[in-house]
Design a protein around this nucleic acid. Sequence first.
DNA 1: TTCTTTGTGG
DNA 2: CCACAAAGAA
Lengths: 263, 263
Amino acid sequence: MFEARLAQGALLKKVVEAIKDLIEDANFDCNSSGFSLQAMDSSHVSLVALSLRADGFEHYRCDRNVSMGMKLASLSKILKCANGDDAITMKSEDNGDTITFMFESPEQERLSEFDLKLMDIDSEHLGIPDNEYDATVKLPAAEFQRIVKDLSTIGDTVEISVTKDAVKFGTTGDIGNANIMCRQNKAADKPDESTEIDINEAVSLTFALRYLNSFAKATPLSTHAVLKLSKELPILVEYHIPEVGRLAFYLAPKIEDEDSMRD
Amino acid sequence: MFEARLAQGALLKKVVEAIKDLIEDANFDCNSSGFSLQAMDSSHVSLVALSLRADGFEHYRCDRNVSMGMKLASLSKILKCANGDDAITMKSEDNGDTITFMFESPEQERLSEFDLKLMDIDSEHLGIPDNEYDATVKLPAAEFQRIVKDLSTIGDTVEISVTKDAVKFGTTGDIGNANIMCRQNKAADKPDESTEIDINEAVSLTFALRYLNSFAKATPLSTHAVLKLSKELPILVEYHIPEVGRLAFYLAPKIEDEDSMRD
DNA sequence: TTCTTTGTGG
DNA sequence: CCACAAAGAA
């Protein structure tokens, strides 16, 4: 059987809120080392990878590897019934066709159980290469969310350019264009507001803002978002979940349409 | 004539907000002992009973018994024009065809008057038997509201089971099923959060969540909701209005469909 | 506090 | 089937 208890149930609520707009249904894979998910979004453009380590749970038991297919809209409905301060226990029998979510209020006065029917989902388990990246930018998650939201009001794509000591986000649209630049700033006094850049080579890549906006739904999970970029590779947008794991998103860059540049 | 002044006008506002979704028009009955209403909801499934005692009013005068038919949507419109801290005076001449609502701001700086046309409504005055109940559950009103709201996202009906020291709310739906259990807990330190169970016999009854959700609109009137259940009898959901009276709702249980159980 | 979402009434 | 209002989310 599989059984895992998360003292901070709010984490699970936030994770599901962050990915449910991107993915309709997904397999959650459980093994002795933890609880994870990998899935392409519905339009097969971006990829979501969640991993929660076994040791991030208050209690974790997984007798044999299982893959549990869930409809994320249903899962979200159920998790909305948990209070933010509830502890959440997930439980599933081997070969069972449901997963049980138990919510316990801090004083244990109220105990709720929700059984979610599992479903069979074909999933192509994509191996994600563990790349070295040309540039890594760590910036406050709220700031990243604000930037992609603001730029979305102007254009559809964003060009992210990273240089040694600044990252620039630029877009162009019908009404004009916009550029937002964030300087490196290792604010030691306010670590939550630091912006750090680690670079091997300057890169400049263009992405669809629509997906970055979806990724930014993970903002409540972490103080910082980490962007990793390499020429011609998908961007990796990572949210570290303190003590427990991480939620990561991959999105391929827009290839410059060179038709207009040919002579 | 009839004249009654309620210092806490907010009470009247809340009462009308709580019942206007259930009832379109109703007769308000006034006599020397108080102000009351009894009506079936529009679909003739549930029953609403309001009573405000004469001594709950700052001033109360009722020369002869009158029954005043009002359209609740209109009454609600009018009461929305009162501030929460206004005192409300209701006034109606005997044989008059209107009722006047006077709103006075706490400093008497602002005084408003609204006349509402009365209407003739046939009302079957149902005698409500004053039953002894098998089980009484008193729980925080907000918690009851939350439970019926959460369960509504999963299913259409709820099975309420009361045992000596806990009350269980269960439902089943397409995506799975749910159970919420509240333990008895006479929290002496936080009386507003206490859950108390008084039981003669364990009961388990099933109700349409839709109506319970409507009943829960009365939540702002009281810290606690009181559920009274007996086998095969309608559930009574009561909200005590401190110092003034009570708002009660009755709903018949779903009879188990035994077709599927016949051999 | 504002906006989006959902349920209800016409 | 459409529009409004109340409720929840940001």
